[in-house]
């Protein structure tokens, strides 16, 4: 009987080995391990055996059964793996086809620039202030040392709503408003970005609406060298460490002395090229020491307080930094334009 079991095992293992699909394997399983199979038959015949033989044969039968089962499982796994491989092969796709787009929007270029400027000055301890776009004549002009008959109003041809109200021509009124708010007894350290309006016909370099960022620092003992230092820090962080700045005298009614700031040309590094019109320098902003009349009108004693102010145009900065060739692009919102500046 034991010999018979050993023979069955050999026979079954051979058949398992020979089976070439799952169906054949199943036939082997049923043929040897099924209820009508030879091993079951052997076990059924155990009753005829002696008490000594019975456990020995029983154990052997179980061993044989286990061996066959194990071989069956192993072979089955091989078949399943093969089947899976087949299936995966059939499932192959063209990985070079485009993915399903995830649409992300992005900020307008002007917003990106204003945000960057804001963050730089916030880092230097400035706060961000806002003010009305329809401004009073007083704040837009008079509080900034531009009385009604001032010749500099030539430069400020404006959109009036009434005789006393107009579309602000610069963000400078926010300076006067903020100083007023602080009542002449606390330092002011702020920037104010915003929309401004001038009576210009729109063309490649003019826009009746544009953006300005204005800055103001008023405290005791503020020096002109501080203006130079702060603007230098800004320029280096915004435009790059390698850029140099220079200040030139200029004129604004609300500052005295007044300056214009140039940065060295990024293309030629100051040697002179077509980008900087052979000068080596590119004008970036205007500023100066706050005019004593402006301080006085806002309630700051110019004998005690001094300060500096500056203003710049994000459109101009964008045009210089990215080579945008027409200011109207900022306001036509051509999607192909907007999307160019959505990268970080």
């Amino acid at each position: 009987m034991q010999d018979k079991l050993q023979a069955l095992r050999e026979e079954a293992l051979t058949k398992i080995n020979e089976a070439d699909d799952l169906k054949a394997l199943e036939a082997v399983r049923v043929g040897y391990l099924g209820k009508k199979g030879p091993i079951t038959e052997v076990l059924r015949g155990m009753g005829k055996l002696s008490a000594e033989e019975r456990p020995v044969v029983g154990e052997l039968a179980n061993t044989v059964r286990a061996a066959i089962t194990e071989a069956l499982e192993a072979k089955k796994q091989v078949f399943e793996e093969e089947a899976l491989n087949e299936q995966l092969k059939a499932e192959a796709i063209d990985v070079t086809l485009p993915g399903r787009p995830v649409t992300l929007g992005g900020p307008h270029l002007l917003t990106s620039i204003v945000t960057e400027i804001e963050d730089l000055f916030i880092g230097m301890g400035f706060e961000v202030k806002e003010g009305p776009e329809v401004e009073t004549d007083y704040y837009n002009f008079e509080a900034l040392n531009l009385p009604k008959d001032h010749p500099a109003r030539d430069m400020q041809d404006s959109f009036y709503v009434t005789e006393e109200l107009l579309m602000r021509t610069h963000t400078s009124p926010v300076q006067a408003r903020t100083m007023g708010e602080y009542k002449g007894n606390k330092p002011v350290k702020m920037i104010c970005p915003g929309k401004v309006y001038r009576r210009d016909t729109d063309d490649a370099t003019h826009s009746h609406q544009f953006t300005q960022v204005e800055g103001l620092y008023v405290d005791k003992n503020v020096r002109m060298s501080d203006l130079k230092g702060v603007l230098n820090q800004f320029a280096k962080q915004f435009f790059g460490e390698e850029r140099e700045i220079r200040l030139r005298p200029s004129f604004f009614p609300f500052t005295e002395p007044s300056v214009e700031m140039d940065i060295s040309c990024k293309v030629c590094h100051g040697k002179g090229c077509s980008v900087c019109k052979q000068t080596g320098w590119i004008e970036i902003l205007g500023g100066g020491m706050v005019h004593p009349d402006v301080l006085k009108m806002a309630g700051y004693d110019p004998e005690i307080y001094s300060g500096f102010a500056f203003g710049m145009g994000p459109e101009r900065i964008a045009m210089l930094k990215y080579g945008v060739d027409d200011i109207r692009h900022f306001y036509t919102n051509d999607q192909r334009f907007l999307a160019q500046y959505h990268q970080a």
Binding site: G123, G125, P187, N221, M224, S225, D226, K228, G229, P257
Partner: peptide, 23 residues
């Protein structure tokens, strides 16, 4: 200042107390 030369002014930072900026 302009005859002295703006180029000859130093780069300094304001000496007043620093207060934190924040939106």
């Amino acid at each position: 200042a302009r005859i002295y030369g703006y180029d000859h002014l130093d780069y300094t930072l304001p000496e007043g107390g620093q207060f934190a900026g924040k939106l």
